[in-house]
Design a binder for these strands. Structure first.
Lengths: 158, 158
DNA sequence: AAATACTCGTGCGTATACGCACGGTAAATT
DNA sequence: AATTTACCGTGCGTATACGCACGAGTATTT
């Protein structure tokens, strides 16, 4: 099955192309593509904990922390201690952060238009649906390390 | 158009899921997901220059160089000076490199099976086709910084 | 042949991506 | 209440990803 072996590279190629284009488009604004993803996640759910933010990116908690340190230094986000859980910290956009995010949203529009523009309307929907499906199947369970265990695939989730 | 704004995140999510799974699957073998991509590219075209190799990954020449330094140290690849162009260097898998690649190919099979397994047969083909389409449209020409260009990029609000 | 333009690899700096381990705190168990 | 367990953020180490600039070599033009 050729398709099976081509899918990973196709996915990689498309993602890296998106990432590069975004980086170059956002660079004049002083931000990276990933920082934009973080700001976007924050703009839709204020007062998130760092872990919850990481889950939504999705990204690693320790990566998110490094990004937050930078963004906080630039005055785009603010971190406060969680009201009830003293371990956690809540993260929120500052006024400057919200402004910057709107700026980048506009700056990124040509890229989004380009991606979707080459597709039929239903193709775009199909693509998103299949990508989500693939991501879910990958995140589902752990791949058995070698042999055996056949199909013990359990479904968590509902 | 909601789809347009969801596509980038869906693409990111799927790719990172693949990358994480691959990394964890290859870790016992002492290699990373990206190193596997490099070995795969080499296994299908020997005696590539570093730039050509980078083009096929696809990746950045300076990134590829760093990876080659590591892989060469591990004895998986070999770099020689190009026969006719003294600026360039040709890269090839060593015997150990070929062996390692076959090992990883097998180790990665469950991941590929998982990705494709959640899809209908025609869906997998569609997905690959659409990913390639998106990547091409992103790589084609640079996005104008602000002017219009009028082709067919219509403005759509979020 | 000489000057110019282009290309290859390298080195450097910054930002991600992630695993792992540690200290502190909350939640669950006894 | 005391203990165990689970979870949050942090710090550290390694590997990518990419831009940029430099030196050396090749190709093109004059």
């Amino acid at each position: 099955m050729k398709i099976k072996s081509e899918l990973p590279l196709a996915l990689r190629t498309a993602y890296l192309a998106l990432h590069r284009q975004s980086d170059s488009q956002f660079a004049p604004h002083g931000l990276t593509a990933d920082q934009f993803v973080l700001l976007a996640a924050l703009s839709r759910g204020q007062a998130l904990t760092q872990r919850e933010l990481a889950r939504r990116m999705p990204s690693d908690p320790s990566t998110v922390r490094a990004m937050l340190v930078l963004l906080e230094r630039h005055g785009l986000v603010q971190r406060d201690t969680h009201p009830t859980d003293s371990r956690a910290r809540t993260v929120a956009l500052t006024a400057a952060g919200k402004r910057k995010f709107r700026q980048l949203w506009t700056a990124g529009e040509p890229i989004r238009a380009k991606m979707v523009g080459s597709l039929q309307h239903d193709e775009a929907e199909t693509l998103v649906r299949l990508l989500i499906k693939v991501a879910e199947s990958l995140n589902a369970v752990s791949v058995p390390l070698d042999s055996e265990t056949s199909n013990q695939t359990q479904e968590v989730e509902s």
